[in-house]
Amino acid sequence: MKRGANYQVIPIERIFKSIRDEYKAKIEDTLILEDTISKLEVDEEETEPRVWSINSKDKIRTKIKDLVEDAEDRLLFIITPDLLMEELGGYEWILKELWNKKFANPDMELIIALKFFDDLKDEIKKLLKIGVKIHYIVGDNIIPFGLLIGDNDFILTTLDQVQDAPEYTSGLWLEHGRKRQIMGYVHLFKHFLSSECREVGLTTKKKKTIEKSA
């Protein structure tokens, strides 16, 4: 019976090449790991809650649009009168944005509070028809603040311009807020609704009936 050789002669170049390949693979693995870890760290940082100060009419409007656009589950919005005033750009820019949002996401919770005036009647009807809940602010006082709460963010604006008309151009924006950080502002929103507002509803027109005389 013939036996195979117990030892094999391997050229030294092949041995070193195999060692080099092993090291190369390990180096590549470390690079992939390093890259993955660094990406994970960035993501974590990006979702940390942050508070920003926003100070201008245009920046606040842009941020409001962003928050409306990004929201998926809810939008709770106390709309300050300057965002609707004809002299400051009218109401269409924001009410259409809200209509589009609710229309595209019928299940989303969308509640707004605003000071009612006649020009808004048609827009309000359109919003009510697609399920937006609307509360009008009663009383004759200027509201001191505005508030927009999205899924994980909110922007709180305060009255700071009284030169001609009241304007709210100082804002605090909480980005990537935790639930507990937003909870108090949701409470503030609901408190405002219950103490300062009345809900608006659609009423059906009664059909005129003609009574037949006997």
């Binding site: 009383g139 006082n141 200027i142």
Partner: peptide, 11 residues
């Protein structure tokens, strides 16, 4: 009568 708080504004 309801007291005005701060101010009221109308155009």
């Amino acid at each position: 009568y309801e007291a005005t708080i701060g101010a009221n504004f109308i155009v």
